[in-house]
Design a protein around this nucleic acid. Structure first.
Lengths: 300, 300
DNA sequence: GTAATAGTGTCTTTCAGACAGTATGAC
DNA sequence: GTCATACTGTCTGAAAGACACTATTAC
């Protein structure tokens, strides 16, 4: 046992998510050479809990009012912060996922909303398989994994990228990113030979991948989409938001039935005029939480 | 920003789980006044990653060989370590969940396996609702929550404990524990007026609740039960293990069909003699991972 | 009228739950 | 034979997915 604990620095990283115009956005700050997530040191004297610290961090760096906040994962790999290489202390960081509503905008600061598919273009299947997936990523992982001659690795690639008849698992965002990292398909990898998607500072792209995966998994069994929507919305807006997050198109009529008959929303009675037939306005029905064990948006 | 980071100590806590004789067990070490989880400081010089540190910690304290290991949550509330009250540094701890097979036994050390329902008796519904739940916990939470006159709290209690027609959600182990803590139903709560279940050292019971909840949720969509079973097993053994973890009885014939037709297991061709008709022996079929997006044990 | 979006009804297949009943061992 | 456990078949109702079709606005 160490008497005093070897040098560890504890920090926080925040993935702040919003959906605007069917585009899933993440809040970024200008980093040294690439966009960065809001982050900073954890100050135990100031905050009673890690969650409060994350809330304050986001508030200070972006002037946003966060609703939903959830701990994601704690990242502590050696050299995840480049300053460690020069002998700096180990940087351990607790990642948080924050969801903010549509109307909210970062004011003043240098913060910017970025569509997250800029960092993960292969994850957007809404207009059919993304060109970069079919044209570049899949051939790359297939070829590179085969060249390694590692059966376990090849199997992981097959499962994560849905090769050879395996099913594409929407949630496996982190697995796919990690495989691309291992295979040198992203610039931040030590032995990069390809550069799919835009990079982020440090390991922030990994943290974002964790957040997207978590979010995609969770909308299925928790009503968290509504954190991203205004109190009143049309079913098309709800569907568009779910599609933006999940990166896939849903069948309109079935989605509508699933969601309205599932008791997760209720009509307000109002209607909203759009470009076609006016749409009924709905609101979230909090009672579902008591009625159903896993109330989510029924997507596979 | 602090120049040097205020005093934070980073540690690790491990929930090591095994199932023996249909009893879900957690590995404990003797604490000062209550059973404790294996835990220790994170030493950045020794371990490249937090996961490796957790692996080493478990190995050193229990002589166990861990298979599956997963990060649970990072706990950092002020005063979670009692030494903080006397001015000690903030103790932040990364919790890990480890699964070990049946045959493995802690050797030498002072470690002991404890049935986890000793700490959470209200979570075991296998022989019908536990007496302590119906006779004591439910009346207590209903009464205490009502006395607070807090509508949001009452609603949380209703949902978490399945009162007034709300569905009992098997996974909500942590929510139920936290409510009991808030309402003073566990001795470790600052204003305790009741003492349901056995306590653990520090906030270890909260960490265990997190682990049980995670495990119960995850068996539904990931084939992790098999980490707790030997390579070959009968369907009854598999069912018994799932029942032990989930705390509820399953319908035998339906479980059997679900599991065998789901392609998650395959018969080895062998049979095993028990007290009744000999049972067919099965093994896990890793190919499911590629075939189905969420291969788990189909329980609601 | 057309284009665009919103919304309904129905058909089919799949699957979970309930349950009745059969099979094969030990004694 | 009985008891205990293992296993099979069938029925039913709920729900998911596909799809054809209708409704209401703007122009």
């Amino acid at each position: 046992m160490t008497r005093d604990g070897t040098a560890v620095r504890l920090g926080l990283d925040a993935v702040v998510v919003s959906v605007h115009d069917e585009s899933p956005r993440v809040l970024t700050l200008p980093g040294e050479d690439a966009p960065a997530l809001p982050s900073g040191p954890f100050e135990p004297d100031q905050d009673r809990t890690l969650e409060l610290a994350a809330r304050r961090l986001i508030g200070e760096q972006t002037a946003l009012r966060v609703g939903y906040l959830e701990q994601l994962y704690t990242f502590g790999d050696r050299y995840r912060d480049p300053r460690e290489v020069a002998g700096g202390p180990r940087q351990v960081s607790v990642g948080y996922l924050a969801l903010v509503g549509e109307g909210v905008v970062a004011s003043g600061s240098t913060a910017a909303w970025r569509d997250w598919y800029g960092f993960f273009p292969w994850e957007d299947d809404r207009e059919g398989p993304a060109p970069v997936l079919e044209g570049a990523v899949l051939p790359f992982v297939r070829r590179t994994a085969a060249a390694r001659g590692d059966g376990a690795l090849a199997s992981r690639v097959r499962i994560a990228f849905g090769l050879d008849g395996a099913a594409w698992n929407n949630d496996a965002v982190l697995e796919r990113y990690e495989l691309l990292f291992e295979l040198g398909g992203v610039t931040e990898a030590p032995d990069a030979v390809a550069a799919f998607g835009e990079r982020m500072a440090g390991d922030h792209r990994r943290i974002l991948a964790t957040a997207i995966g978590r979010l995609r998994g969770k909308i299925k069994y928790r009503p968290i989409v509504f954190e991203l929507l205004p109190a009143c919305f049309t079913l098309s807006e709800l569907q568009g938001t779910v599609e933006a997050l999940s990166g896939m198109r849903l069948h309109g009529p079935n989605f509508r039935r699933l969601v309205s008959e599932g008791g997760i929303v209720e009509p307000t009675g109002e209607r909203r005029t759009t470009r076609g037939r006016p749409a009924s306005v709905y609101r979230f029905r909090p009672d579902v939480l008591a009625e159903r064990p896993d109330p989510g948006i029924g997507i596979r």
